[in-house]
Amino acid sequence: MSVEIVLMYLPVGLIAGLLAGLLGVGGGLVIVPMLVFCFIKQDIGSEVIMHLALGTSLASIIFTSISSFMSHHRRGAVDWSIVKEIIPGILIGTFMGTLVASRLSTGFLKVFFCIFLYSVATQMILSKKPKASRELPHKPGMFGVGNIIGVASSLVGIGGGSLSVPFMLWCNVPAHRAIGTSAAIGFPIAIAGAFGYVVNNLHASGLPPYSIGYVYLPALVFIVSLSVLTAPLGAKLAHSLPVDKLKRIFALFLYAVATKMVWGLIS
């Protein structure tokens, strides 16, 4: 692997860690498109690029989420009762999502990812918060919500924060507590997702060397090496910076990323 490729992976980890701690989004919204760009530069087969990006993103979030949720936990911002209730649905939904994703084409997954990026960016730019008008559901409801978040997260390679944070806000969970709890929820999503992308695709064709299923180990190592260092910084900033304004700036970035991916699909 060339030095140029290595230097491309390091900023991915830097940015992913900051976003995981700051916004509770796990960093996958940035990791996936940046990995796609890196894989194209490496001339990895187009038929596996998106799957490899999704699997590697989820594997990296395992480490990023630990660093992030521990930082939030030290500030008392993780509601472990929510995490406990939603984990069963998360684990099953995420693993089942990887089964579906492994049977979808790269083109379909890219289109789905772009639509998801536009949706998340629009929600951020409008800063529309769901009306806090109810309490968290009981166990069956939390299981169902976990299923939905898990399936969606596995299809776009994220830690679920883009879905779990709005859900918790809707259920009257305070914003900083929702972000911290979302970081903790990202851990079981990443575990189940990475496991699914590995065991369901151990013998997939067209994979580059040093891959285990749809997880590319060199990218994983370089991303994790920085993301675990910057996630605590992001968590610290989340308690001192105007997160809503930062989200709007990040939304503009997501629009640009999604548009670039759409242009690549068209051209």
Results as ranks from 00 to 15, higher is better:
residue 111 V to W: 14
residue 137 P to I: 00
residue 230 T to I: 10
residue 231 A to P: 14
residue 149 I to Q: 05
residue 147 N to I: 14
residue 115 I to Y: 11
residue 163 L to R: 00
residue 109 L to R: 02
residue 158 I to L: 15
residue 224 V to T: 14
residue 129 K to T: 07
residue 240 S to A: 07
residue 145 V to W: 10
residue 189 I to R: 01
residue 104 L to D: 00
residue 235 A to H: 09
residue 168 M to L: 13
residue 182 S to W: 04
residue 213 G to E: 04
residue 124 M to N: 10
residue 142 M to D: 04
residue 170 W to N: 10
residue 113 F to Y: 11
residue 222 F to S: 07
residue 115 I to G: 10
residue 171 C to G: 03
residue 116 F to N: 13
residue 164 S to A: 10
residue 242 P to W: 01
residue 137 P to N: 02
residue 134 R to V: 00
residue 142 M to K: 13
residue 182 S to P: 02
residue 230 T to R: 09
residue 112 F to V: 09
residue 120 V to E: 15
residue 171 C to Q: 05
residue 137 P to C: 01
residue 151 V to D: 06
residue 219 A to E: 01
residue 154 S to Y: 05
residue 173 V to P: 13
residue 183 A to Q: 02
residue 123 Q to A: 14
residue 181 T to E: 07
residue 130 P to C: 02
residue 196 G to I: 03
residue 241 L to Q: 09
residue 117 L to Q: 14
residue 162 S to R: 11
residue 127 S to H: 10
residue 141 G to V: 01
residue 216 Y to V: 00
residue 128 K to E: 07
residue 217 L to T: 02
residue 176 H to S: 10
residue 146 G to Q: 03
residue 191 I to C: 08
residue 234 G to Q: 15
residue 238 A to D: 06
residue 202 L to F: 15
residue 166 P to F: 00
residue 122 T to P: 12
residue 134 R to G: 13
residue 109 L to C: 10
residue 151 V to E: 06
residue 193 G to C: 08
residue 194 A to M: 08
residue 188 P to E: 09
residue 131 K to S: 01
residue 148 I to G: 00
residue 197 Y to T: 00
residue 212 I to P: 00
residue 248 R to S: 09
residue 115 I to E: 07
residue 167 F to M: 03
residue 163 L to S: 07
residue 135 E to F: 00
residue 146 G to M: 05
residue 242 P to Q: 02
residue 194 A to L: 04
residue 227 S to V: 15
residue 157 G to W: 06
residue 112 F to Q: 11
residue 137 P to E: 03
residue 207 L to C: 03
residue 138 H to D: 13
residue 196 G to C: 06
residue 194 A to N: 06
residue 244 D to Y: 06
residue 127 S to K: 11
residue 208 P to F: 04
residue 135 E to W: 02
residue 148 I to Q: 02
residue 162 S to D: 11
residue 107 G to Q: 07
residue 186 G to W: 05
residue 110 K to T: 11
residue 160 G to M: 13
residue 180 G to M: 05
residue 216 Y to P: 01
residue 180 G to A: 09
residue 211 S to F: 01
residue 212 I to E: 04
residue 105 S to R: 06
residue 105 S to N: 01
residue 143 F to V: 12
residue 153 S to G: 08
residue 189 I to P: 04
